[in-house]
Design a protein around this nucleic acid. Structure first.
Lengths: 350, 350
DNA sequence: ATGAAAGCGCTAACAG
DNA sequence: CTGTTAGCGCTTTCAT
């Protein structure tokens, strides 16, 4: 049988409470006792039982993150920030991915983690809010929403200023002289996608450029969908001179399609994306993109959550991260000419 | 205070045992009792306390995955497979990333999860094995190593046949007529990288091509390191006619450097990578790559782990996943000519 | 089909 | 500085 704290205490010749104190770095323990307990624990290969500890103490020293997928640069960034910040504060991070709507297991994961497994939760872009946000509130489980403004007031959240991101990118395109600027929208049911659309519209307004519905099409964070949209523009003869994609993956696809149709980026059409993916600087033209500072989102979410856990929440219930625009070749005319070595590899046919 | 099972039982007018039975779908409960308990639980917003449940039952219905990073297509694939398979068997998946050697928190995460949080562990490419594998064995914690053959016999593991993957790729390059084939090695301290090196060597042997030490350089899964290696070849005048990179990220970098130096891929130098990254088919030339079937790795790891948890381990203690070679343009001479629309975007200067 | 009693492993509160 | 007592919330006997 695996050793318990009783075995450790027995072996060290002290009572379990003393052993517990040593194992938890409490003060007021004689040096000799401390030594003996640690030695006994070491010899027995003792590992404390988390469940027992949590049950008694009411603490888990863990925070949970629930998100739809891990195969995404934004998510990876958030998680890196969460892990780093949590670790610094002595917390472990437990991640669960719900893998999309197919399973609809999001609520189950939240419930699973909620009681006794973590001290608080970070929900990244939750889909079926309604189902369990209320429950979390009722249970008084500390939680923070990341990358989504909750409709419920008072809910803690860290969001990227998507409006501002799209605004910056669109403004940049306007300043480069573009007037027919297309936008491939992520998903109409996702709040952040709508905010980007508004940021795009605002920039147009500011420059006195009329909003054209035919220049706004579906992007859906999907290459296939984006392809259809671009093809529709091409066939309709109303191809914009600049395109703001919903993410870099889609932006790459857009560049590929345009290139295949004999158009050059950025000379004929400028293209910008979202995410500042690490691939952005590998290929030519390098991709102009909105950096959402995802690690910062993760870090702030943890800071907010830890405050909620220790019931020190102040005024600040909603943190907004300002994205940055990374201007690169895909939107910059008169780029430093072609490579002196001739044409490099282009983009692939599908 | 959050409701406990006692509250639920009281409200339903039964004892806690009956409530527990209902909540755990035990048979032998009158339909009326069942109804009453479920109603009470619903009304109170009851969520069972995981820690208490685990402490008593000795089960968690959760499996843990510990891995160094999430920002990697192989890891994302493994995790997708794990989550899918585990969910099908009624298990939750808890993931922890240790974020590299910087923290050296790998062992701490393993210990943290080990007792009372999960029923078993999947360790993906563990770095500091020695530190805790022994401990896990001693504690009789079921665990499976993924993507790494343990030095200890009897340890459960799922590995990609890296030897075979590199062998397939090298053989393909040989069949395309190449004789000076370079290899950028991942990391000499990682077993899988060494296995790939051996697979590469074996293929050369089979084709009677002599192994040249000068054609094997550092890749380190790092763009910077790969760049140095390629530059060394260029300056040394011993550039191979084909290069097998340690992963797709490095392969992209290689293509970028070669292109910048006026060389064309695959016409002057063929390039292949590992991972079958989703970017492989976006850019031209599309990238030939070894698909490691990472999802399958994850699925098999779960199957093995669940057997270990239920103590039904049979003969099969070590599963080997056969990778597949995805042949694409970057290694295929006489590719279907240039795009009829002229040169597409090339690869970027750094 | 239901309940009473016991205790999983640990630590907070108190007493010494 | 150390120990005794109690009990976190739940499920597993074992009895009825």
């Amino acid at each position: 049988m695996r050793p318990t704290i009783v075995d450790v205490a027995k072996r060290a010749g002290v009572c379990t409470v003393t052993a517990s104190r040593v194992l938890n770095n409490h003060p007021n323990v004689r040096e000799e006792s401390r030594r003996k307990v640690l030695k006994a624990a070491e010899e027995l290969g003792y590992i404390p039982h988390s469940a027992a500890r949590s049950l008694r103490s009411g603490k888990t020293t863990a925070i949970g993150v629930v998100l739809p997928t891990l195969d995404d640069p934004f998510m990876a960034g958030v998680l890196a920030g969460v892990e780093e910040e949590a670790w610094q504060h002595g917390y472990f991070t437990i991640i669960s991915q719900t893998r999309g709507a197919a399973y609809a297991n999001e609520a189950e994961y939240v419930r699973f983690l909620t009681r006794g497994r973590v001290d608080g939760l970070i929900l990244v872009t939750p889909r079926h809010e309604e189902e369990y946000i209320l429950e979390l509130e009722r249970q008084r489980v500390p939680f923070v929403l990341a990358d989504k403004n909750s409709s419920r007031p008072g809910v803690l959240s860290v969001t990227v200023d998507n409006f501002h991101g799209a605004y910056l990118a669109t403004k940049h395109l306007l300043e480069m002289g573009h007037r027919a600027i297309g936008h491939l929208v992520g998903r109409p049911e996702i709040e952040s996608s709508l905010q980007r659309l508004r940021g795009y519209q605002r920039a147009l307004e500011e420059y006195g450029v009329e909003y054209r519905a035919d220049l706004v099409k579906n992007g859906w964070f999907s290459r296939e969908v984006a392809r259809e949209s671009v093809l529709a523009w091409l066939e309709g003869g109303n191809l914009p001179t600049a395109i703001l994609a919903c993410d870099d993956n889609v932006a790459f696809e857009v560049i590929a399609i345009l290139t295949r149709h004999g158009l050059r980026v950025p000379d004929d059409v400028a293209v910008a994306g979202f995410d500042d993916d690490k691939m952005d600087t590998v290929f030519s033209p390098t991709l102009t993109s909105v950096n959402q500072r995802s690690m910062e989102v993760g870090r702030e979410a943890v800071r907010l959550l830890l405050k909620a856990i220790s019931r020190e929440i102040g005024e600040e219930r909603s943190i907004v991260i300002k994205p940055e625009l990374m201007v690169r070749e895909s939107t910059t005319r008169n780029r430093r000419g072609r490579s002196p070595y001739g044409q490099g590899p282009g983009l692939a046919d599908p």
